[in-house]
Design a protein around this nucleic acid. Structure first.
Lengths: 107, 107
DNA sequence: CGACGCTATGTCATATTGGACATACGTGCC
DNA sequence: GGCACGTATGTCCAATATGACATAGCGTCG
């Protein structure tokens, strides 16, 4: 992992480098954040494709602009639940979501 | 939606039939629970395929048997995050997960 | 240079989800 | 019947995610 990426993850609240895993995240943690990154990207793409601002999407989700921003940044404070709901709300089908997830392969 | 399914969902804590949507969930809510159901099924399948009990998987996840049970029942109190982490921990690849999600099409 | 529109980041209090535990349910076995 | 094993369900309270808000960055237009 590149150290700048690591730094970003740490700032975002991921526990990185806890004794046991001296370099990088454990395999699952890593898979998990890759997954989140893929979905985050998907949210941004879909949103932009629809010409929505973060604020507009937030309203549609009854959430707030800041949550949407964090979501698109795959911030550690946003759950997969919110991402999935967003994707669905923005018109993604399970098939679209599956496609995004496949992009998390070997990240 | 079949009424027995609706009843199960209600028992599991989903808000069903709140005034506005007099029959069934809103489109996204519905898509969302279908997604959870698909992943829940996946967790159970993978677990059983590995000959693990719920308690054994719980241990591996540093969780508890009851959470695993609720997870496999797609209980409203379990997040997608936990399901995804479980799937990854149990050896599912993004590709496997994508496959599960595609099964949530038109549920 | 503002001023505007959009996005990023930080912080709160409240709400939701977490593990743990108890206990019920089901099934097979003696 | 009683017992062991696995699963289901319900309730605690600790931990985490939530929306809201403030505010900072960043282009672009005038």
């Amino acid at each position: 992992m590149k150290s700048d990426k690591k730094a970003r993850l740490e700032r975002a609240g991921w526990r990185v480098g806890d004794a046991a895993d001296f370099l990088g995240l454990s395999a699952e943690e890593r898979g998990f954040v890759d997954l989140k990154l893929a979905l985050a990207t998907g949210v941004r793409q879909l949103r932009e494709r629809q010409g929505l601002t973060q604020a507009a999407l937030a309203k549609q989700l009854r959430s707030s602009q800041s949550r949407v921003a964090k979501m698109e940044a795959a911030d550690a404070s946003v759950s997969l639940d919110l991402m999935m709901r967003s994707l669905l709300s923005i018109g993604a089908t399970p098939r679209d979501i599956a496609k995004l997830i496949r992009k998390a392969e070997a990240a």
